[in-house]
Nucleic acid binder design. Structure first.
Lengths: 358, 358
DNA sequence: AAAAATACCCAAAACGTTTTACATGCCGGA
DNA sequence: TCCGGCATGTAAAACGTTTTGGGTATTTTT
């Protein structure tokens, strides 16, 4: 075989026997719980070290009902059905950063697929809490988890579950306004938006904000949708559709996904249009495609690292309680301060696909 | 509070009571184990469904000694100490793909930091098996895990632990030869190599292969090292160092990391050299930097997705046994076929940083 | 010197499963 | 009528912890 001789792990019993005490004493000594003579504690600790003992996380989890694992479900990947490298930039960075932050807080982070489909790997319900990125409307995952009493924090709201408030925003409203403002400052008069088709708050709220602006301004809203999974090809297809429609073209297009934006830009350029002179392009999500298109595409930096960090922080506070909560202020008397979703700063990356302000 | 009323999960006892049978019968009925009257089984299954019962993964894990979680430790990130997006392309893609593959095989995948430092989040030793990417020499993580009887699969070998054979290669030897060959075919006469400083097999074996070639060819080896963490700046610094040395410049440089390659190229260009005309550049790891430099840099596509998939497959076979193993061929009589590391195909991405063959 | 307090330690229960080994009732065969 | 066998079901142990509720010396107080 390839593996080394699998030696049995030392248990608390082994330590107890070797140190000549009861397992209770070992547990207490190691966890600093009971009241124990210093000499005994020292002896136990040393024996434990000798034996290389570390408490079994599973057994401990069974007693304490916490495993030390955070689950992460990225909904768009469920619908996309693939972790193709192109375009999922954001999610991979999000997952990596979430893992690191979880680790720093003493949790492991397990990436999981939609636990409601197929035979959920039971382990799903064993995680201490979940982060769910971009839930869809009335998300069944949130349903399943809350029904089982598992803490959930969402990134992006569940647009049909207003009572679920444990979410932190991706700044969708602000970001959309910022992009529109950006276009307007640069002389745009006819702004269009391209959202994806997933039924999540990023798509919905972006469109909502856009429509609100259009209504206020009295402009006919120009809203297009495209399957996220189609990527750049989808953006290009949309460009052709736009050109073929005979309608007057927009002079600024806001594509939520970076791949749509890159495809749209390429499609328009192929038809002889100049970016940004004829038409400006911006993306709602910075990605390799927006950074490396020609010209590079102005994008919202969704700050996946900061968002992940905030989400983990929020969830851990939900689980462990807010560390420095004011003990006097505890309105619901549940002994735990109510954590409030951290805010994340987003920035617009000003690139050549929108006119310079000079 | 933000969470829903945390309802207690139904246990096997609840099901047993409701169905009027013992918990043994419930367990058997649900797992298809014992011999039970069809009517009883049906009744049990139905009540279980009614109650929304699903066995607790932790309790089950305690009995069966398997949790359904695979651990992933990416060593270079431990030493790098950061999940910064730049340059870790490969690892994020690796982690994402590994997670998906694990999920497909009924496991969750938990990303973890070096479990030997600090107070390892006990959960580390609770994972069923581990994938460890790019172990360092005599890697303490492999040591810790095997000592505790936990299955480990490495990507890249432990260069000072020949008895550890459960690793799959990143094709380092072949890849290095391929790049050298690529350079030679394009007229290079003076080839240099730049490795990183981590003490892993990627660095070591690349250098070894290169030196072997140089020795055979009778060329003085031109070997440089640079801290991986320095990224593009490190590559640029090395370029300046090369220029300042007064030695005749190489006409082809193989940088293992994409960031070093990009920095090296930029540094040489800044000094007025033309790529590829004066000097050719290639990278041992395709990344955003190599794809998007000007000119784009010829690179080995390390196929992180395929490698991750192979690693997970290998590990799962180690844990569960090879599904379709020939029962007659079982030399060690341990009832489990010995899985053999899957092979992964790597390709060289031929780009403008090396001369065209026209 | 007896009672009360203190310091230290431990047995056993509990967490929710799976599995082993045995109990019960019924049938057919002798 | 008795017995072996079969079909069905169950009690209890085990997994490795943490925690509860004492228990036993030893010391202090009266």
């Amino acid at each position: 075989m390839t593996t080394n001789p699998p030696r049995r792990r030392a248990t608390i019993h082994d330590v107890a026997k070797r140190a000549g005490v009861s397992i209770t004493t070992v547990s207490h000594a190691l966890n600093g719980k009971g009241v124990i003579a210093d000499a005994t504690r020292k002896r136990v600790v040393e024996t434990a070290a000798d034996l290389g003992y570390s408490p079994d996380a599973i057994a401990r989890g069974l007693r304490s009902r916490r495993l030390g694992i955070l689950g992460l479900v990225i909904r768009p990947l469920d619908t996309l059905g693939s972790y193709q490298p192109e375009g999922v930039d954001y999610f991979l960075r999000f997952a990596g950063a979430a893992a690191v932050e979880a680790l720093d807080r003493g949790y492991g982070l397990a990436l999981m697929r939609d636990p409601t489909v197929g035979n959920a790997p039971g382990i799903a319900l064993a995680a201490d809490g979940f982060i769910i990125s971009d839930p869809v409307a009335s998300d069944p995952v949130i349903e399943l988890l809350t029904r089982n009493g598992i803490a959930v924090v969402a990134v992006g709201r569940d647009i049909e579950r207003p009572e679920f408030t444990a979410w932190l925003g991706a700044g969708t409203h602000t970001n959309t306004d910022a992009v529109i403002q950006h276009f307007l400052e640069r002389g745009a008069t006819r702004i269009a938006i391209v959202t994806g088709e997933d039924n999540n708050s990023w798509n919905a709220d972006s469109e909502l904000t856009y429509r609100a602006w259009a209504a206020e301004r009295g402009q006919t809203p120009l809203v297009y949708h495209q399957d996220e999974g189609l990527g750049e090809a989808g953006g290009r297809a949309l460009a052709e559709q736009l050109l073929a429609s005979g309608e007057p073209l927009p002079d600024a297009i806001y594509c939520l996904t970076g791949r749509h934006a890159a495809g749209m830009q390429a499609g328009l350029q192929a038809a002889g249009y100049l970016i940004p002179d004829d038409i400006m392009i911006a993306s709602g999500s910075d990605s390799e495609q927006t950074r490396n298109s020609a010209p590079p595409i102005t994008s919202i930096d969704l700050a996946p690292e900061a968002t992940a960090k905030a989400a983990v922080t929020f969830l851990v506070e939900l689980l462990d309680g807010v560390p420095d909560a004011d003990p006097d202020a505890d309105p619901d008397g549940d002994g735990a301060g109510d954590p409030v979703p951290p805010e994340v700063e987003y920035r617009i990356r000003d690139r050549a696909s929108t006119r310079s302000m000079r």
